[in-house]
Amino acid sequence: MDEKNNLSFKESRILHVTASILIVTFLCSAVPEWYTPQFIMNGVVSIILIIIIVLAWRLVELKARYFSIQSYCLLFSLSFLFAQPIIKYFWQAGNSSWIFLLGIWIAGFVITTFLKENLFQAFSKTFENRFSVAFHIVVFICITVGPLLIILGNANDFNQNISYGLVLYLFSALLQIMLPEFLKHPKDI
């Protein structure tokens, strides 16, 4: 049977998650250089996520459901913020690649939200169906390609902002893939 959500404020980890979200918001708004309108946008998104976490702590009945909502909000903020440095870099450089990267991020978010049941099955029943196998192969390729981008970027005197931005964008995509699983209600698991 699921435990009731009778968490105290200290047990709820709201301060820890809030500090994490705010620190990453500040850092990602400053990379590759500070841009106040972006910080305001990121701040608004972060505050909305923190409000959702506090409301979930007060209103959600099950402890497991509260922590899954909290995890979703934290991972969404990281995914949202990690995608921004490379998009901002290309936008400020006058390169239209930022539109493509932003479009991919938005499409990825929509697609993973619609495929949340398949993604949940890929995590819970590892390698038991084709989707799970394909998913794990893609994730493995992404995890191995990320460090190679940094190595190649530094070896060929590739712009470090681009190489680190691409790695953060890759992490954003991986986090985005994991997001929908946290929307699953404990009773449905």
Rank of each mutant, 00 (worst) to 15 (best):
M1Q: 09
N5Y: 05
N6L: 12
N6S: 09
S8G: 13
F9C: 13
S12L: 00
S12W: 00
R13K: 15
A19E: 08
I21S: 10
T25Q: 09
C28D: 01
S29M: 11
A30Y: 11
A30E: 09
W34E: 15
M41V: 15
M41Y: 15
N42I: 11
V44Y: 11
I47N: 03
I53G: 00
R58G: 02
R58K: 15
V60C: 06
E61C: 03
E61F: 07
K63Q: 11
Y66N: 05
F67C: 01
S68D: 13
Q70L: 14
L75K: 13
S77Q: 12
A83F: 06
I87G: 01
W91G: 04
W91L: 14
Q92T: 08
G94M: 03
W98C: 01
L102A: 13
G103I: 10
G103A: 08
F109I: 02
I111S: 07
I111L: 14
T113W: 11
F114R: 10
L115R: 06
K116V: 00
E117T: 07
N118L: 04
L119D: 00
Q121T: 06
Q121I: 09
Q121N: 05
T126Q: 11
T126Y: 09
E128M: 09
F131S: 01
S132I: 06
S132W: 03
A134I: 15
V138M: 12
V139D: 01
F140K: 12
T144N: 07
G146Y: 09
G146H: 06
P147Q: 06
P147T: 05
I150V: 12
L152G: 13
G153K: 07
A155D: 10
N156K: 05
D157R: 02
F158V: 08
Q160W: 12
Y164T: 15
L166C: 03
V167A: 05
A173Y: 09
L174V: 07
L174A: 01
L175V: 03
I177E: 01
P180I: 06
P180V: 08
H185W: 05
K187H: 02
I189A: 13
